[in-house]
Write a protein that binds this DNA or RNA. Sequence first.
DNA 1: ACATTTGCTTAACAGTGTTAAATTATTTAC
DNA 2: GTAAATAATTTAACACTGTTAAGCAAATGT
Lengths: 199, 199
Amino acid sequence: MGSKERIQRLKEETRLNILDAALEIVKEDGWQSLSMRKIADKIEYTAPIIYEYFANKEGILLELTRKGYIILFQELKAAKLQHELPQDQLEGMWMAYWDFAFKYKELYQLMYGVDMSCCEVMKAFPEAEATTNIICDTIKELMTADPINDDLVCRKYFTFWSVVHGLISINFVRKGTDNTTNQHILRDALKGIIKYIND
Amino acid sequence: MGSKERIQRLKEETRLNILDAALEIVKEDGWQSLSMRKIADKIEYTAPIIYEYFANKEGILLELTRKGYIILFQELKAAKLQHELPQDQLEGMWMAYWDFAFKYKELYQLMYGVDMSCCEVMKAFPEAEATTNIICDTIKELMTADPINDDLVCRKYFTFWSVVHGLISINFVRKGTDNTTNQHILRDALKGIIKYIND
DNA sequence: ACATTTGCTTAACAGTGTTAAATTATTTAC
DNA sequence: GTAAATAATTTAACACTGTTAAGCAAATGT
């Protein structure tokens, strides 16, 4: 009797339902709000049922992370195929990477650990503004244009911040990599930005 | 009688003790492990006492974030004073920013929401490697040197990743900024890196 | 000496992840 | 068709979490 397979199919379906429910909750109220009981509510079961499909909460998160990498890879592949020259492919893929992060914001957060909690923090702290100012002031000193384009200053600041924060993130994630070579990368990148600071 | 002031001083001290205890716990076992009761244990009180010094747990985190920004500002200031030319000051400050992130790793995590959970995840997922490979392959195609310097490829990949991830982080944190200008910054930065991909 | 305030703790509530036991439903065997 | 065995699901519980209210004990004011 083929009922075994039907049951197998149903089990596979509720497994997917769990993942969908989890992602739905996160989309509605953020990662912090995700709980086993809420997932159970959404799939109309009780919490312990989930443990027959996933070892624990971490297991669900790992599966969603995997899902994220699969989607990202597909998007990169598609972007690559839209161009001929390697440099265009490269740019296209990184743009696709960018798009992915916003299209699948929750997955990207999970994949790269971007915590959103500092959203209002930024506005509330004069200290944060001070650090921005001391750097922006120096950037202005390097600018030859008169009058100074404040928008350009802001963009340059963001560029700096991106490179440095990005490299730091990598160093946090990839502990194995030695610090000195990354520091070299940083220094080179900085010199480059500074050199062309007037666009 | 001056006992009022003595008591005031003691209260100020336990307030600092709470912050120190919190940071100590985080240094030992990470942010996830921080709890009100553990802090209370460390300062040899019970949990509710903390609520006479801070509104809630978030209040403690906010205060530590503030502390982080204060320290960062001081380090940037010191770095700036060590140079004469603006370009040197700029480079020095960003290097100081870099150093701060590692010297005060826990504070930096709190300030910019860098979650460390993806540490082992990276190694465990072939999907993550695939995304790395498809990009690195294209980078190699752009390289003119023969034989190809794999270390340089790796560095270029990290540079790309840094810029993109950094910009994405900014966009997550600063929702107000409009997406199109940041996308311009990204595209320009990418073209720049690609142009000078052979160092 | 009595009343009042202060400092601190215990107890409790609602929530979390997780596990074991109890219960219900379904299938199997005769 | 009824009884036994198995599977599916729930309830109950444990050890945590942040947070609040009630209670107690010691210091202070009068």
